[in-house]
Amino acid sequence: MIDLTPAATRVARVVDGIDDTRLQDPTPNEGMAVTAVLHHLLGLTVAFGDAAAKVEGPTTQTPPAVTEEPLPAGWRGLLHERLAALARAWSAESAWEGMTTAGGVTFPAEACGLVALDEVLLHGWDLAVATGQDYEVSDEEAEAVLPVVIPSGDAEEDAAAREGMFGPPVEIPEDASTFDRALALSGRDPRWQPAAG
Rank of each mutant, 00 (worst) to 15 (best):
T5I: 00
A7Y: 08
D16E: 11
D19L: 04
D20A: 14
L23W: 13
T27A: 04
V34G: 00
A36E: 11
G43Q: 06
V46L: 08
F48Q: 06
D50V: 02
A52N: 05
A53P: 00
G57V: 09
Q61S: 15
T67C: 10
P70N: 01
L71S: 06
A73F: 02
G74K: 09
W75F: 11
R76H: 12
G77M: 10
H80F: 08
E81I: 05
L83G: 07
L86P: 13
A87D: 07
A92P: 01
A92D: 15
A102H: 12
G103M: 07
G104H: 10
G104Y: 05
T106G: 11
E110P: 00
L114G: 00
L117K: 08
D118P: 00
W125E: 04
V129K: 00
D134Y: 00
Y135C: 09
E136T: 15
V137D: 07
S138Y: 01
E141H: 12
A142F: 09
E143A: 14
E143N: 10
I150R: 13
A155V: 12
E157G: 02
D158R: 12
A161D: 13
R162C: 06
E163I: 02
G167Q: 07
V170S: 06
V170C: 03
E171L: 14
I172D: 07
P173W: 05
A176S: 15
A176T: 09
S177N: 03
D180L: 06
L183Y: 08
L183T: 07
D189K: 10
Q193M: 08
P194S: 08
A196K: 11
G197I: 00
